[in-house]
Design a protein around this nucleic acid. Structure first.
Lengths: 252, 252
DNA sequence: GGCATATAAAGTGCATGCATGTTTTTTGCC
DNA sequence: GGCAAAAAACATGCATGCACTTTATATGCC
């Protein structure tokens, strides 16, 4: 019932593409700056450019994609400042979530949450991208339990944006402590002290942001100039030239 | 510079339509439930259905429009519960805004704000719709001064949704006190105590919501059954039949 | 050979057309 | 005249086509 209302409500084709792209983005299969040509998307998903275009529009409204007139759409590349601001908003929103949830979750819901954290635990050995996605989905799951469509939508949206940001700024993802914090959060929710759990959430998100955005004034390398700086004085090509697939994509 | 990034970034045609519709909605020129056929919009704005459709998609993403498959799009009709939730979110977001702004506004900015409130004052005699719009725009103006694109976007979006809600639930708009609260807010912002002004904002929005949503369990009449209840036992038609223009529109 | 310019390729911006589904009107029946 | 079914009108869902802009490639000049 409460479902949907995250997409636009239009067809399912647009929704499908949105979901697929969203997931690809937050799993870093599509890195920030990666090009998203309408034709390619259309062909890939078996629809016309019209639909692909519409999907890109939705994603742009969510802030996951950047649309520039007459230019190929690209995965959004939030600035450090935007990242910081986004986290600030997220903190307030998620404080609201847990305050509404404290002491009001059923046993089944608590079990669901703990199950999810177990999944996070299980994914610890695997690729970073999956860990980040699962961590994000934990928060979305929490929001879903408020059953407030508006809150669900905003938390999801902003959590995905934060996810994108994390993939941009923090390469060595340290999710171990985060997982533990998720467990503490669930316990506090069960105990039921609203302010206590709000404060826990605040510190949790604060430290996630901190771990990622440690006083880094610039993105860690999305800027082509930064990436190339160390190589600037190397000789043109170390003979391994021809086989190099032209696969830059991200960062143009 | 910081401008835009509220639309989608695509053409300007889509943006123009979005702006126009948004304004029409928050001024109640288009009431909740009003139909928005693609052809009509396209013709009105001199574009094809494709563009009108895209614009509707954007507005749906903002929650101002409801899109149902194969059905004419309509202006959103938020439920009472959604309205309450929306205001809760808004409170947190705007507390964030004023906390960031407290003591940091230039003289020019303070003057701009006071000028806006003067405009609100001047509009007191006029139509309710304009008062509501101006009050909403005051909050958007505040958000803009944070220069945080993310915050600006979310506050604007949610303020417009609240605006829509207000038009739905509170007919006798009592904006006089709100205007005064705006002045107090500005003074507190100038003084610079972040927590003080956050608390002021909290109470301001709380009372706005309260004035509008006073324990009303259902929308004040958007439901056709409610509207018709008092008339249910009247005779079919009091002879004034033929001339009645079929102008229901809202509430189908 | 290096750089500016011209040319081709690729991509978006947008309107139009047809298929399909929904709403209203008309028709037929009682 | 009142009601149910059929048909017309209406509206969306989507693909395709063309014009225009940007980007990549090739050409020509020095």
């Amino acid at each position: 019932m409460v479902r949907d209302r995250g997409e636009n409500g239009s067809s399912d084709k647009v929704g499908t593409i949105c979901r697929a792209l969203r997931r690809a983005i937050i799993e870093q299969a599509l890195e920030p700056g990666a090009k998203l040509p309408e034709d390619a998307l259309g062909e890939r998903f078996g629809v016309s450019r019209t639909i692909a275009r519409h999907a890109l529009g939705q994603l742009a409204a969510e802030g996951l994609v950047e649309l520039r007139r007459n230019r190929i759409a690209v995965v959004a590349t939030p600035s450090w400042q935007e990242a910081r601001d986004t986290f600030d908003i997220r903190i307030e929103l998620e404080r609201l979530v847990v305050r509404q949830l404290a002491g009001r979750l059923s046993k089944a819901q608590l079990a669901t949450l703990r199950g999810h954290v177990d999944a996070e635990d299980a994914a610890r050995g695997g690729p970073d991208a999956v860990s980040i996605r699962l961590a994000t989905e934990f928060h979305v799951l929490l929001a879903t339990m408020t059953e407030s469509p508006v809150l669900i939508r905003y938390v999801s949206e902003i959590a995905y944006r934060c996810c994108l940001t994390l993939s941009l700024f923090s390469r060595p993802h340290s999710s171990e402590c985060a997982i533990n914090e998720h467990r503490l959060l669930i316990d506090a929710l069960e105990a039921g002290d609203g302010e206590k759990v709000a404060s826990l959430m605040h510190h949790h998100l604060d430290s996630v942001a901190e771990r990622a955005l440690v006083a880094q004034a610039k993105p860690r390398g999305r800027d082509i100039m930064d990436i190339l700086a160390p190589y600037a004085d190397m000789t043109p090509a170390p003979a391994g030239g021809p086989g190099r697939k032209r696969r830059l994509d991200a960062a143009e």
